[in-house]
Amino acid sequence: MQWVWDNFFFGNPSIWQLVLDHLSLSVPPIIIGFLVSIPLGFWASRNRVARSVLLGIFSVLYTLPSPVLFVLVPVAFGLAILDSKNVVVALTVYAVAIMIRSSTDAFLSVSSDVRESARAVGFSAVQRFFGVELPLAGPVLLAGVRVVSVSTVSLATVGAFIGIPSLGNLFQDGFKSSLYIEIWTGIVLVLIIAAIFDLILSGLGRLLLPWNRRTTRRGASRLVAKEAVWTS
């Protein structure tokens, strides 16, 4: 434990610095992945051809192990190989690959009766999307983004593969110097960050989807189960 205190704010790099690095690698992919997958998922839910093409492309991308993406992304996007943006882009690709399934399903879960009614009372397409479909797709979207957040936080450590600083550094350093405490610190911090993100997301869900609360117990656990099937 002493080791943790000694190195938390001091040292090169300090644990705190690595936590910050880790956050800067994992937060953008979660947010960007969520935002990108909403229009894509909406499109896929409305158009069968788009659905099979998009889900097909992203399932191939998802097949690629992360170290491969970390090497291929810079070539595809013209970045330097040892740029931390690579990890962010690669993690975003994974985030979209996971998320697009749930967002497609989220929009498919909005019953067509509801959409037709909204149309009948004079909602425009835009009003329908933001006022009816998006909120109703909310619970499934939330379940998806929670899965994305957990796996992104854990995956960011693989950035160590191409030398991008993250909590993964603690694993490599600890391994080289046979320092268990250093490795455990890394693992525990990754789990803590993942848990905090999950709490934040479920809190946001409660705040933004208050009608979901009553059904949360059964509904959400069923959704999480479904996500587990897809993504684990």
């Binding site: 899965v147 957990v150 796996s151 936080v153 854990s154 450590t157 693989v158 160590a160 909590l167 993964g168 603690l170 694993f171 490599q172 600890g174 391994f175 268990y180 490795i183 455990w184 890394g186 693992i187 990754v190 789990l191 993942a194 848990a195 993504t231 684990s232």
Partner: peptide, 11 residues
């Protein structure tokens, strides 16, 4: 899913 592969391998 949350467990980092590298960490587990190192330990």
């Amino acid at each position: 899913r949350a467990l980092p592969t590298l960490g587990l391998l190192s330990v």
